[in-house]
Amino acid sequence: MTTTLKKPQRSARKPKGDGHLRRGEILQAAERIFIAEGYHGATIRKIADEVGVSSTALYMHFRDKDEILLEICDGAIEQLLNINLEISARPIDAVARVRLMLDAYMAFAMDNPNAYQLVFCGPAGVLSEAKQAATQALGDRCYEKFVGVVREIGASGRLRTGTVDSAAQSMWAACHGLVSLLLTKSGFNWAPADELRAVLLDGLLYGLVTD
């Protein structure tokens, strides 16, 4: 008996007039493709098929997949930077601001899992240092805003152990570790995510900061 293999169905093309999609639609589709296929497996054709347009139409918005990936990363980091800027300006205790920043960071990861994994969990070296320079600078600003609040805690003599840098990096690493596990090991019988976040923050801040 002969079996005839059917070609996979391609996404339907958008009607004329709808083909010039907003950049946001392309970016959302690209996030899914990058996660599913990896950077090297993702192609302009696959991204175009995902959103139902021709490759030519997609090139009207982006030069190549590097530009798409960079815009995804820049958009994610810019959102986190704006969150940190807003929280850092609040007239409340520095410890409370640090807690809010870390919780917002984890909430962002859970609300934007594809973008988060591309920015913070993706393989290094897929883009040149020159192409990533602006993204790196944006990330440095975001991190420095967080460290600045930790520095306030250190200046008041309230750090129980470590330095400002080691305390800030330990807190960030712990939060990243939790959300990365929640995103990539979904089959595990986790406690509720909100509870895990609260317990982690309690442990970090009670362990690192004196009353």
Rank of each mutant, 00 (worst) to 15 (best):
M1E: 13
T2I: 15
T3V: 15
T4K: 07
K6E: 12
S11Y: 10
A12E: 10
L21W: 03
L21P: 02
R22M: 09
R23H: 06
Q28I: 05
A29N: 03
A30N: 01
A36H: 08
G38Q: 02
G38W: 04
T43G: 04
T43C: 06
I44F: 10
R45C: 02
K46L: 13
K46I: 07
A48V: 09
A48H: 05
D49P: 02
E50V: 05
V51I: 11
L58R: 05
D64I: 07
K65N: 05
I68N: 03
L69D: 06
G75N: 06
A76M: 02
A76D: 01
I77M: 09
I77V: 12
L80Q: 05
L81T: 08
N82E: 12
S88Q: 13
A89L: 11
A89H: 08
A96H: 04
R97D: 01
V98D: 00
R99P: 00
L102M: 08
A104Y: 04
M106L: 00
M110T: 01
Y116F: 15
Q117L: 15
L118Y: 07
P123Q: 09
G125Q: 12
V126E: 10
L127Q: 09
E129F: 13
A134Q: 12
L138T: 04
Y143L: 11
E144N: 13
K145E: 13
V147M: 09
V147A: 07
V150Y: 01
V150I: 15
G154R: 07
A155G: 14
A155W: 05
A155K: 11
S156I: 02
R158V: 01
R160V: 14
T161Q: 14
S166T: 15
A168Q: 06
Q169L: 14
M171H: 02
C175H: 02
H176W: 14
G177P: 06
V179C: 05
L182R: 10
T184V: 15
N189I: 10
A191T: 08
E195Y: 11
R197G: 01
L205P: 00
G207M: 05
L208G: 00
L208S: 01
V209A: 00
V209I: 14
D211K: 11
